[in-house]
Each structure stands twice: as C-alpha cells, then as structure tokens.
Amino acid sequence: MATEDPLRSKVLTGSQVGELSAGTTFVATAERPIDASGKVKGRFSLGPRANRVLGLLSPLLIVALWETASQTGVVDARFFPPPTEIAETFWHMLTHDAQGTPLPFLNMLTESVLMKDLWVSLSRIIVGFFLGAVPGLIIGLSMGLFRPVRLLLRPIVSATYPIPKLALLPLVMVLFGLGETSKYVIIALGTFFMVLINTMAGVLNLEKIYLDVAKNFGASRTDFYTRVAFPGAMPLIFTGLELGMGMALLLIVAAEMNGAAEGIGARVWMSYAIYNLREMYVAFILIAALGYLFAEGLAALERKVVPWKPQ
C-alpha cells in the first residue's frame, strides 16, 4: 500500500479508508510532476531568472520611493538628497580630481576623488586584514591542537577580546602615530580576534577520531597542522574571515576619522564637516559595495577551497 506517500495519505484518511473495498489495487501516481523547466506544477514557483528579478525588486522600490519623497519634500532633501543627485555626485567624484579638474578617462581609475578614496581604504583594509588574519590563524590552530598552548593563552585572549577595538584607537595612535601604521594595526586587531577564536573553535569541534587516525598513521607535528587541523577547521576559519572582514570595514571609518586626508572613512567625516551629505552617501555606497564584494569573494573562495562540504 502506498499509504506512506504524504500526498496520497490525504486520500486515505477518515471514513474514506473504509470505502476501499477488499481486493482493490491501489495505484500511486505522481500528483505533482516536475516539468522540463524544473518547476513543480501546482506550487507557486518561478524560474531562476525570475527569482533574480524578484531579488532586485525591493531595493529598486525603495530607491523609487526615496526619490519621490525627497523630490516632493515629504522628507528633508538636505538630509536625504534624492538618489538621482547622489548618482550625479558619484559621477562627478569619479570623473574629477580633488581640485575639481575633469580627468581623461584613463586617469580616472587612479586620480579621481572617488577612486583615490577607494584605493587608499582598500589597501589599508587588505594590509591590516592580512596582518591580523595570519597570526590569528596560526595561534588559533595552535590553541586548538595543543592543550598547554590553550591553557596558556586563553586567559589573555578572553580578557582582551571583549575590549572594543574603537576604545583602543587613541592608544594605537599614540603608539604608532597618525600615519598608515596605526590604521593597519587597528584593523589587524579587529581581524585577529575574529579569526583566532573561530579557528580555535574549528579545531576543537573536530571529531577526536581524526586526531586518533593521524596519530596512529604517524602524522608529524607539521602534518597535524597542515593535513588535519587546517583543512578540518576550514569551514569555521571562513566564518572567522567573514566576521574579520566585517570588522575591518567597521574600523576603517573610525581609523580614518583622525589625521587621514583620504579614504572612505575620511570622506564621511569631511563631508560631515562641510555639510555635504551627498558625498557622504557616495561614501556609504562605496562601503556597501566593498562589503558586498568581499562577502561574494570569500564565498567563492570557500566553494573552491572547501569542496568537501555538502552544499
């Protein structure tokens, strides 16, 4: 009897069951055949292209509402400039240098206000990120693999991790000056803890049996790092990298608040000082774009590096 089929069981509930006379052959048929385009008939579903369109619909709707509200004066256009004006500013910043001179197309990528801000912040984020992620990874693996290392370092990590990195900014500036180094250091600090804690958790979450296998098969100390702990903890290492990246974006704005002439963070504070909110919104767009690109990049890298995780 095909009574286990959830679709069919409906037919067989209640008094209807009794109506099936003895000797009836019950034939189960698929009530929801899947057609060639991968849709299940009878259920609300769109093709993959339509799904993507649906995902774009809500941001477009918000932008349209914003534009109308700002143009009609429902919201204050000084605080919420219409998106078209922001786009105009965006274009101006992309095509002109700091003196307001128009740039030939080829020089835009390096000399325009917008691209300069972008490159400066990007290099700070990348350098700081690696300065934090690499030691975070190594110490995290060591703390996960070796109990004495864990016992030795855990109190320090637990005590320093909760200190808001923003609170450390003045100290970092005193120690490392107002130049690039202090920016690298503050971003590195934020990334370091995220990567360290997640890497350690990744190793500690490994089934003990994998360590037994490695030991029985004669793995050296290096093998424990490179062949067991590192690949095994990889999914959580990526979680750490993603959180570290978020932290870096958060800290860059604060780090560029003082003593920086260029960079996305500096742009936010300068536009605040001169009350040019349109430029501030352009900076927001840049930060959002960076965050999106980093997240997508890390996700693509993860698919490549961790092909063994069932999707």
Partner: peptide, 11 residues
C-alpha cells in the same frame, strides 16, 4: 588501525 566509527577524513 581500522576504526569502528566514521574515521575517513571528510576533507
């Protein structure tokens, strides 16, 4: 050793 439980490295 051949272990009783799932001991094949998933990665």
């Amino acid at each position: 050793m051949v272990f009783q439980d799932q001991s094949v490295f998933p990665w």
